[in-house]
């Protein structure tokens, strides 16, 4: 986001655009994160349901990866993944 001067702030700090939390990329908070192993994934979407942010990307009903712009590395998806060989494991991803 471009840094605004005080004259350009909205009085009282009200946010007039809906959904602009998307502009606030919180992924930088992460120290370690989930690494996705597609061949192990059974597409149960537990990871998507449990993710406390919105960092599990789903396309056509299938898990397709982790959105690292918002993933904070909490590890819940990796813990909840029920596949025999886990499709999400915590590691030093980018």
């Amino acid at each position: 986001m471009t840094a605004k001067g005080w004259r350009d702030t909205v009085p009282g700090g009200w946010i007039k655009e809906a959904g602009n939390a998307l502009e606030y990329k919180t992924g930088s908070w992460r120290s370690i994160g989930p690494v996705f192993i597609p061949e192990n994934c059974i597409n149960c979407l537990f990871c998507w349901a449990f993710c406390p942010d919105d960092a599990i990307m789903v396309k056509d009903g299938k898990m397709v990866g982790v959105n690292y712009d918002y993933c904070k590395g909490c590890g819940i998806c990796a813990r909840e993944c029920p596949a025999k060989n886990k499709a999400l494991v915590m590691g030093e991803e980018g």
């Binding site: 840094a3 005080w6 004259r7 702030t9 009282g12 700090g13 009200w14 946010i15 809906a18």
Partner: peptide
Amino acid sequence: QKTLLDKENPVTAGPLAFTDSYFEFKRA
């Protein structure tokens, strides 16, 4: 001047402002 109840124009009141913007809001 502002309302939370206008569903055509949704707004957020009282959000977080950290080191990068709190000071600008207080100056205003």
